[in-house]
Computed example of a mutant assay.
Amino acid sequence: MTRFTQTVLLILLIFTSQLVVNCSSDKDPIDEIENSTSWMDDLEKSLGTGTKAKLNNWIAKGLDQTKLKEAFSKSKDKAALLNNLETAQSIYHQRVYIEDWNNIPGIEKSDYVPNGLANGKTSPWNNPDLDLPAVEAANFVDATATELPAGTKIYRVTGGNPAGGYWTKEIPKSVGDVIGGTAVQPAWNNFSKFYRYEVPQAKTLKVWQGTTARQPIATGIINPHLPGKAIQLFIPAAVRDDAFKNSVQEIQLPW
């Protein structure tokens, strides 16, 4: 056997060996697809028909599949997790349940340390119904009783009560401004509607104004948290009478 023939045979042997290795290591694309959703099939069996469809629907709406899979993998009560996801206020609330912190705007990835007022405050209006109770004072770093003049416009993002207590004088630029800036837990709000109130002519509006305190992102979670820092308003219930409620207008969301 000549040196040339030996060289050719050696090259063919190396090529054949590499081909065998590559073929044996290549994954069947069909197998990969099946494996990527096999966890859904398992949940369908344990949690009931329709579970997989719900999961796929949430993923189609923006829920991260990897985080969703991890959450179910770690959960000791998968039925409870499924129920929480079904009854969540919004996709941001769902992301809290699956700990998808990268996709909740406005949060701060550090430990929550309370910085709200420790006590309520007495108003200068000689009316205890206009005082700032301790439960509301805890949502402020500082709070001052003030009267907004006629023509002042205030704003509120909510999916619930249009005439609730908390408002801002600034229009939020994003849902992150609401979640982070005014420290609104996703469990409290679905951020689906936007309201405006304008103080009527020849009137003033008695409010408490101050810097929003930090909040935990959810009960029992220390890190991440909601940093607050935005200026917010609290309107006492006694001020939010029928005339106030009838003057609240729904407007288009600013984002």
Rank of each mutant, 00 (worst) to 15 (best):
Q215H: 13
A243P: 08
P186E: 11
D177A: 06
D100P: 10
A80M: 13
S174I: 08
V141P: 12
A118R: 10
A71V: 10
K61V: 03
R156C: 01
A237Y: 13
V141N: 13
I235C: 01
G176L: 01
A88N: 03
D64I: 10
I231W: 08
L82G: 09
K193Y: 04
I171V: 15
G165I: 06
W188S: 14
E198S: 02
G116A: 07
E170D: 12
M1H: 05
A118W: 02
T211K: 12
F234K: 08
T211H: 01
G160D: 11
S24N: 07
Q185K: 15
P224V: 01
A80T: 15
P236K: 03
I217S: 01
A71Q: 10
W188E: 12
K74G: 03
T211P: 01
Q6S: 06
T5N: 08
K169S: 09
K78H: 04
F15K: 02
E250H: 06
S123A: 14
S75H: 03
Q65A: 15
Q89V: 02
W188P: 02
L68P: 07
N56W: 02
N56M: 10
T182V: 15
D111T: 12
N103L: 07
N190A: 02
I231M: 15
E136C: 04
N161K: 13
L226Y: 00
P29C: 04
K153G: 04
N246L: 06
G181V: 01
P227S: 08
D64R: 11
I179A: 13
V248K: 08
D77S: 10
V135F: 09
A187N: 14
V199Y: 08
L47I: 08
K54H: 12
P186Q: 12
V8C: 06
L43I: 10
D142S: 14
I14N: 00
P149C: 07
G48R: 05
A202G: 04
L117C: 05
F244D: 07
T204H: 13
V157L: 09
D129F: 05
S174V: 10
Q249S: 01
F191V: 14
L13N: 07
I91V: 14
A230M: 13
V175C: 07
Y166C: 05
K245G: 06
L205N: 01
A137E: 08
L9S: 02
D111E: 14
W58Y: 13
L47C: 08
Q89G: 02
H93S: 06
D100T: 13
G176E: 00
E147N: 08
D129P: 01
V113Y: 07
V20F: 13
N119H: 05
N103K: 11
S73M: 05
P200Q: 10
T122L: 03
Q232H: 14
W58Q: 06
P128C: 00
P162C: 03
V184I: 15
L253C: 13
M40C: 07
G120N: 10
T168H: 07
K203Q: 15
